[in-house]
Design a protein around this nucleic acid. Sequence first.
DNA 1: GTCTATAAAGCGATAGAC
DNA 2: GTCTATCGCTTTATAGAC
Lengths: 199, 199
Amino acid sequence: MTPVPASRPARERLLDAAGGLFYESGIAATGVDAILARAGVSPATMYAHFAGKDGLVAAYLQQRHEAWQRTWDEVLAERDDPVERLLSVFDAVTRFRERGGNRRGCGFLAAATELPPGHPGRPWLDADSQLLTGRLRDLAVTAGAGDPDDLAATLLLLYDGALSRYARGATTPGLPGGDPLARARRLAREQVLAALGQS
Amino acid sequence: MTPVPASRPARERLLDAAGGLFYESGIAATGVDAILARAGVSPATMYAHFAGKDGLVAAYLQQRHEAWQRTWDEVLAERDDPVERLLSVFDAVTRFRERGGNRRGCGFLAAATELPPGHPGRPWLDADSQLLTGRLRDLAVTAGAGDPDDLAATLLLLYDGALSRYARGATTPGLPGGDPLARARRLAREQVLAALGQS
DNA sequence: GTCTATAAAGCGATAGAC
DNA sequence: GTCTATCGCTTTATAGAC
């Protein structure tokens, strides 16, 4: 008979604070105290909402995964041409980064580096990989690529290359060679056209 | 008048232990205790050789940077053809990984993600970036590329893509699309030939 | 140069009141 | 559901003997 669950504010503030700090300073380097201070929440409240720091990390990755997927869905809904739909992953990540004010690299790549094998956040990293490989493959099939898995793997390589360049360049502000994502998209377009042309 | 400094064993054992643990478990997640236990060294001895954990991290990165540069030098000494010399970075990293028994991604990429802005190890990450961009550019010039900086940036993108794929795949054992480094080399070869052909 | 023992701080997590 | 106060462990780092 509860009218509305409605217990939002503290949990959301915690996720916001944790998300910012995890992304900015790294997961292992971010203490629970810092998250609590930024969120303006007491320790007991946090442990009422999440199963410890690991649970908060997992929730952060889930939230980020879902936001990323929504952004990609959004961009896909704006594209009709099969080639443009294949390249949409680059436009989507550009939009995702603009929204989040992302200055560093990919949050999932960083988490993949930091989290130990059995961590409860790992499944969301796998979900991210699955989304990328699966969706790129499907789009390649629809576009009529001769070897969809091969084309998807190539696009994924370029995607990873651009994002890891951001991670390295966080220190050295002046990225040489212009925007890595723009370069990756250009190369991806070449590869897509070549793969469709000779199929 | 000291005949030989010769104070090696403890310091080297510490670097070996730290290198293995930092690479395997991450820098922030690796405690000093674990390093001391693996090296069989007491805390006081470590602090006599290094300025704290940060100093040890910096020394680890310096050692890794120098080993990587030596490996690349070695491979370059075996190549005469300008195109092969440009692609040598992919062969060198393959050899480097075989030697170190590397299963995870790039140690420098991981460190770039983990280390805060003012960390004493940062200069070695910059040195690594400098080595890659500078040397690739020089090789592109020698090969006669019309836009050496552009070609170098493209090769770097592919290089980063392959290495970050390893980082993500550490969890998911079955990497789709075959070996990322082989794929990156193949794409790089295409780009090099195209860049030299139309110059 | 290397050890044993310990200090000092930070961390994740919990108890109990409201 | 949220707070204040605190526990207990781990971590980095140092003191002092050999």
